[in-house]
Write a protein that binds this DNA or RNA. Structure first.
Lengths: 345, 345
DNA sequence: CGTGGAATGGGTAACGTTTCCCACGAGTTG
DNA sequence: CAACTCGTGGGAAACGTTACCCATTCCACG
């Protein structure tokens, strides 16, 4: 049994001594900085490998970068977010950067707590996924550390943004349903009361996209929006409201796959089947939607591409904090499955 | 528009100057260390609040603790892990510690990469969820930093462990099915070839628990295990094998909920319905299982409690690195839903 | 009254890395 | 041949915090 002795970490000084050079020289090699001859470079590399040296990020942080990127996301459970995270981490693979995630945080307070913690730990950049904090707070953060905001519409001169085109996404759904012959198409939205967020949140744009698409197809009069929340519970309650209408909708566009799950539940209770009695769509194309026994028509947001773009923008901004901010808007695609069918009547 | 000037961080020196005390004094107050009078304590607290000071974790790391805990998990997508993570974070709420997650890592190499990154960032403790690395590597890590391993059976003198009693869990399922009148109960397991892991992985114990429970109920001859993997694909292939038997099983015990999803698919293709034709169970009680349209009988592992215990053990070990290691084993419970029914024949 | 100990506060040297600047020598130019 | 530039390397001072130790004061006790 080996001794439990805490062997001291190999430091840059050890490497320098081993390679018979100064610590400055080793540091230059580590960072590919100017002022190191190929000969020295190679000598130092060899010593690093031989000693198994890895720079101590905490110490680096004191003088500059920690080579750490923080991702904040509201909810680990939402199966849509892992795609984004994968997109980010894939982009950073083979760089010196390491991606770390905050635990799911719901609400402004938790968001502030996590982002503060990340800043205190000297992270070089932050990716905020679907944050709910007011814009002023996001800009405050962006002043402290390079930041990319994902899933909030609205440009900012302080941070870059990556969004999916929810307006188009909603119209994809409406067009699909109208093409199938549906006219009474209802939408279940997430109720947003906070005025500062109102214009920036994806859910708002999905509803707006729904309205516009309905009008564009000459169905403005059939527009029917129920406000609950983007949860399974919200879907259940929303569906109950819709089923109580004197004229039931023939199709329901749920604002998120989660919501569609709740709708399914309500429909099952009412002995209605999908898609025979009612067509149903979700949004986000989560793994739930793909399950054979659910097979939900949904909109795919290309989460992987969203994450990749966020990573690219962040790295660009870390390199040049002064460059003007940009917004990347990605196009969603419709995934047709078995939960939508031609209107029966 | 505010100036984009990078305002310098408030440091302990600023606080000391503001409160007219030494930096040492401020440090003592921060850490609740001995040697600070109540009067000074209060004076410093006030300055901290007034200046909005937060200690810089990167600098702290250089001298000792970073107050950061790292969680490594193999896959963000598996809906079972968030429960554990929540259990951990809930425990650390209201402490100075912050929990950060590594991005999903599959395979030894990715695990090593992430754990190294965490150690390099001076994390005070690591929680490894269902790691696949050989035990020797885990012990190596535990020598460097306090570590708790979750979901690996087998004690270690180096690290604490938290596991769920998979042996019992498997027997809960078998007993339930036998009580319903089933005799031909098949099991789909995850094939484990690596000898160093063989005895420690939960999947091995589930299979073993299945065998023992079958024997205990006098059904040793009916034991039927198919080896694929704990994936949806694995479930699909496993079910196909079982359906090709000359005598089909009347019940299938899938080693994980994911696997059961694949089984469902294969059964649907074969025009068999659940539970009328075949009873089906999963394991882990993920959110999939709870969906109404799936409604899968499963075993709940009390993920929240697992996480809480892991957090407690880790904090204990950070406090006292010398104390002997322990293993906490939690008991699972059976969640009966609609995918299991009395045997028809 | 002298001694000892507890309580309180501060000075200072780390921790591991980067960055700024200077030194040295060789080559190039006038 | 003097005065440069350029390439290469290193010394030393940060960065923000903690830990070790010492100084001072006050009080209790013999």
């Amino acid at each position: 049994m080996e001794p439990p002795a805490q062997s001291r970490r190999v430091t840059i000084v050890d490497v320098a001594r081993h390679a018979q050079v100064s610590t400055t020289a080793v540091s230059k090699v580590l960072r590919n900085a100017y002022g190191a001859s190929p000969a020295m470079r190679e000598k130092v590399q060899r010593s690093i490998a031989e000693l198994g040296y890895r720079p101590y990020a905490a110490a680096r942080g004191l003088r500059g970068q920690t080579y750490t990127i923080g991702i904040m996301l509201p909810d680990i459970r939402n199966p849509f977010f892992p795609d984004i995270v994968d997109g980010v981490t894939d982009w950073f693979t083979d760089t010196d950067y390491q991606v770390l995630l905050g635990p799911g945080c719901n609400g402004e307070e938790a968001e502030a707590r996590v982002t503060e913690a990340m800043i205190d730990r000297g992270m070089d950049g932050l990716i905020l996924i679907a944050p709910v904090s007011p814009r002023s707070h996001l800009e405050h953060l962006a002043n402290l550390v390079p930041t990319v905001v994902v899933g909030r519409h609205g440009h900012s001169p302080r941070y870059d943004t990556v969004v999916d085109d929810d307006l188009t996404g909603a119209s994809l759904i409406v067009d699909h349903l109208v093409d199938l012959g549906h006219r009474r198409i209802a939408h279940i939205e997430h109720l947003e009361t906070d005025p500062t967020r109102l214009a920036e949140m994806p859910n708002t744009l999905r509803t707006e996209g729904y309205r516009r698409a309905m009008s564009a197809r000459g169905l403005a009069d059939e527009t029917d929006v129920v406000s609950t929340s983007y949860t399974q519970e919200g879907g259940y309650l929303g569906a109950q409201q819709l089923l109580a209408r004197e004229q039931r909708p023939t199709a329901i566009f749920a604002g998120a796959d989660f919501v569609a799950m709740g709708v399914l539940e309500a429909l099952a209770e009412a002995k209605l089947s999908v898609p025979e009695d009612i067509s149903l769509t979700g949004y986000d194309n989560t793994s739930f939607a793909a399950l054979r026994s659910i097979s939900l028509t949904s909109v795919d947001q290309a989460g992987h591409a969203i994450g990749g773009n966020a990573a690219r923008l962040l790295l660009d901004r870390i390199t040049d904090r002064g460059r003007p901010t940009v917004q990347v808007k990605l196009s969603p695609t419709l995934i047709v499955r078995n939960s939508t069918a031609p209107a029966s009547k």
